[in-house]
Simulated assay, not measured.
Amino acid sequence: MEKGKVVVLEERVPKLKEQRRQRANRLLIVYIALFFMLLLAVIYAQSPLSNVAVIHVEGNRHIASQDVIQLSGVTKKTSFWKVKKDEVEQRIQQHPEVKEVSVKKRIPNRIDIVIVERKRIAYILDKHSFLPILENGKVLTDVKRAIPSDAPILIGWKEGEAIQDMAAQLAHTPSSILNLISEIHYTPSPSDRRHITVYMNDGIEVSATIDRFAEKIVHYPSIVSQLQPGIKGVLHLEMSTYFKPYEADEGNEKDENER
């Protein structure tokens, strides 16, 4: 029996050696493959192939894409793997018109920047240019050639508490209502130092006060819908709400002249 066992072991030794050799060869191949993969990764990281190829900006309306890219600090010479999203977002967030920003890295070398701008709620006439007023009340004084096509124009206003309060009211006014407003004039009177005169795009004049303006102006569409078509006049939104046609004013003037 012992001699039989020795014979069996002697027959298995070459097979065990072959298995060990094959296992060692496989491990060697794995190590070599890993080495070359690491080497290629290092070469790729150090070569221009790893640089950012595409910088895409979306969501911006008033801010130029190039300005966003410049603020980001990312260029076509920046390594894709060295772009830190948090740092890029912080740099872009410094722009006064940026409300929110999100940066996404897309392999192999694309950077997506998604912008949410602060709403422009009005434009203030300053000499011969229009300065945008943001929803947080900030006036942008360094904007060139701003075109007031998406918000009303403030005329006769000066920097101070009144304009900040008006900005706060407009910030709470729906965009659908803001689009109906053409101009807002600051027209204080002895009885109301916060009186304003609002000119609507449909030709109707609104007499109101700064306080609770957002709360009252939202009813404008429903009030106007009850008026006779084509009639123009002044809609009073002060203490009480009523409409006074222009024709009635002219008739009263004639009656007073006859007297």
Rank of each mutant, 00 (worst) to 15 (best):
I177Q: 03
D112I: 03
K99Y: 01
K82A: 13
M166F: 07
I69M: 12
E89D: 05
H185P: 09
S72N: 07
E135L: 01
H185I: 07
R61C: 00
G137D: 04
T187S: 08
S175P: 00
P174K: 08
G137P: 06
G59T: 00
I113Q: 02
V54P: 01
H172F: 09
A167E: 02
Q93Y: 04
R110L: 09
R61K: 14
P96A: 04
D142S: 11
L40V: 12
V42E: 00
I184E: 00
I43Q: 04
L140A: 12
L140S: 11
E135S: 10
A171G: 13
R120P: 03
S65C: 02
A171R: 10
K119W: 05
S50N: 12
Y123C: 06
T187K: 11
S65M: 00
Q66D: 07
M166H: 11
K138Y: 12
Q66Y: 03
A146T: 07
P152C: 12
R91T: 05
V139I: 15
G59P: 01
V88W: 05
V74G: 05
I69V: 15
I147T: 13
I177M: 08
T187V: 11
E183V: 04
I124S: 07
S47G: 13
A151N: 08
P152Y: 07
H185K: 13
H56N: 08
E97W: 09
T75P: 06
K104I: 11
V52S: 01
K82S: 15
H172P: 00
P152S: 11
S176D: 14
V116A: 04
V54T: 14
K99L: 04
V114T: 10
R118D: 00
F130E: 01
M166Y: 03
S175Y: 00
R61W: 00
I43R: 09
D165W: 01
N51D: 10
Y186R: 13
I181L: 12
S50A: 11
D165R: 15
S47L: 08
N109P: 02
K84S: 11
I69R: 12
Q46K: 15
I63R: 08
V114S: 10
P148R: 10
L131D: 03
I153R: 15
V98P: 06
K77C: 04
T78H: 02
K84D: 10
I115T: 03
S102H: 05
V98H: 10
R145Q: 13
R145C: 09
Y186A: 09
Q169H: 11
E58L: 02
R106C: 05
I163V: 15
K82W: 06
V143E: 06
T78S: 13
I107M: 13
N109W: 00
I124F: 10
T173A: 09
T141F: 08
V139M: 15
A64V: 00
T173F: 05
A171F: 08
I124R: 12
L49F: 15
H95V: 02
E159M: 10
D86Q: 14
A53V: 06
S129G: 11
Q46W: 11
V103W: 03
A162D: 06
D67A: 12
N179I: 05
K82E: 11
